[in-house]
Design a binder for these strands. Structure first.
Lengths: 157, 157
DNA sequence: TATTGTTATACTCTATAACTATA
DNA sequence: TATAGTTATAGAGTATAACAATA
């Protein structure tokens, strides 16, 4: 509930001011609203966006190293250390020593981690259906494609 | 340059993992990429997203109070105190005592603040043209409309 | 020398709660 | 009592740099 209280309380409902046409601001508001809605949906099971991203990425890439995970998540490796320790402490993932290279760890979800991810994925699916309802089913794919384009392409140059 | 260094260095280029289909994650990546591109464009003149939002909102609503500004920006009023002090120190805005109510301040841009906003708005326009190039001119309006819908509607229930 | 992960440190942004000065 | 703004405090998230262990 902590999560619910801290996010999405006050929002810029109609943040007029020449600003609504600006992509970055809109993206920020949209992201916050989307997360707040997701957190409301998942309730107690909620994981902050960062943790959820880690769980998803590890779930999709079992055995991934911390460095590779950091790159995939767009964060420095040093950022991951406490986050991974937290997820490990909660019993959601394991860090196994790698045979070939004793410097690195192979990250994997525990059964509890997989269960959590499954549960959250169900919520995410419902959440995505809300998106359809909100923007229309045809527009939805276009919007996601655009976001992907922005996320990937705009970083380049 | 500080700003440029701190943002948009490492990105999740192809953050596969069942996660790319998830709106929230995409929104986060898109926002960061968009801001990084904007910061790259504005260079020295860069203002962090929060400051920029304040400047835009005050520019559009001269005389707005801090509490009202906080609501418009979706942030608690206590958050604004240091941000406004900073903008005031930089000579970009003024906080004038209000005649009728001596508790509150009326926020206004200084000439320097207006100039800064104008300059940034020009960059923002160029930035928006990049968006057109990235997602196509027709899709652009649909995308912005969708984001507005998400930001506004999804917060509701 | 280079790489993996950790630690030390610092900075930004955010929130809540308690405070003041007004209303 | 209620509101506008400030201050004190705390927490999350992020980064850079230096480090130890290993390659």
């Amino acid at each position: 509930m902590d999560i619910l209280r801290s996010i999405g309380r006050k929002r810029a409902v109609s943040a007029s001011g020449g600003l609504e046409g600006q992509v970055g601001f809109l993206l920020r508001l949209a992201q916050e609203a989307s997360f707040a809605a997701f957190a409301r949906r998942t309730g107690e099971a909620a994981l902050r966006p960062g943790r959820y991203a880690i769980l998803s990425l590890v779930g999709a890439h079992p055995g991934i190293s911390q460095t590779a995970l950091g790159q995939a998540a767009g964060r420095d490796k040093s950022t991951l250390t406490p986050a991974l320790a937290d997820l490990e402490k909660r019993g959601l993932l394991r860090r196994d020593r790698v045979a070939g290279d004793r410097r690195s760890y192979a990250l994997r979800l525990t059964p509890a981690g997989r269960a959590m991810l499954t549960r959250l994925a169900a919520h995410a699916a419902a959440h995505d259906r809300d998106l359809d309802a909100l923007v229309g089913e045809e527009a939805r794919d276009a919007v996601l494609a655009a976001l992907r384009r922005i996320a990937g392409g705009w970083g380049e140059s």
